[in-house]
Amino acid sequence: MSHDDHHHELPIPESYEGEFEFTNGKFAIWLFLVSDAMAFIGFLGAYMVLRMSTTADITPTPEEVTLSWKPDWAPELDLVATGVNTFVLIISSVTMVKALAAFQDGFINRAKMFILATAAGGIFFVGFQVWEWTHLIHAGATMSGLQIPEFDNGDPYHPGAVQRAAANNPDRTRLSIARELYGGRDTTAWDQEKLDSFTMADYVNLPMEFLNPDQADPRPKYPGVIHMPSFSIPTVEDKVPAQNRWDLQNARNEEDVDRAAVLQQQVEDGARVSNMFCSTIFVLTGFHGLHVFIGVVYLWIIFFRARKGVYGPTNNSPVEIAGLYWHFVDLVWVLLFMLIYLL
């Protein structure tokens, strides 16, 4: 066998023939998609754990917000609009496979139109997500947390309840109002120092019996709220409402009430609390939206190369690879749509 012969005939055993009837690029994109899928699965796993470990939808008092999954005053996700967006993504997947089919059959112009239609679907999808994020941010939700809204004036747990009551009852002292509003509550379970300094590490190092919600959970307990072990990490922002309630409950004099009033004002001025619902939806939809955006750029590159006549019936593997990426984005959305919007 001459050197040339050896070069042209790849030394692949006969038994392997037919087993690898795909390009290296196709195998590589599958390996990439598999690793990318694991990243998504990691995020989704975190979402599931956090959702299950925080209390369900409740009307929380300010300091309970970090322990609740989605306070009922948190902004709602628009299921119908997102359903329409999901349809757009499915349609873009169809136009993608139609583009590949057109390339394979030699209908290059038709293929280019389908590529453009796919990219347009992606742009619509990302555009809708920008609109949705804008809506959420205006409603007080960001990745770092949730803005505390003005509570109902009739709610005795309203951060501004004392000032309002004092304004309506000028003959009474704020201290007596604060005692009436908060004095009847059992505060023995409170351990403010522990609450203030509680970190993720404390949860990790806690003996198992502390993680049983019925036993010595160091966090405060409220009637009617089931406390599950939570991974919510108190931050400086969290402490504003928590400290606020604490001060009012333990007010010994007018000065204490005034100090609490300053904190109340902070809450009314838009104090934020960390909230896992907000953090996770922004991370998940953001990570997916980034994939869609990259996909749109990818499709534009495919389109411009197609315009140069690079692809045809015998050379369309790069189009198929781009398609695999695009369908993967659709595939992930099936899961995200179900877990975030439908459940």
Binding site: D105, N109, R110
Partner: peptide, 10 residues
């Protein structure tokens, strides 16, 4: 389709 030729068409 002007870019399609009979050779390419499969």
């Amino acid at each position: 389709d002007e870019t399609m030729t009979s050779d390419e068409h499969e």
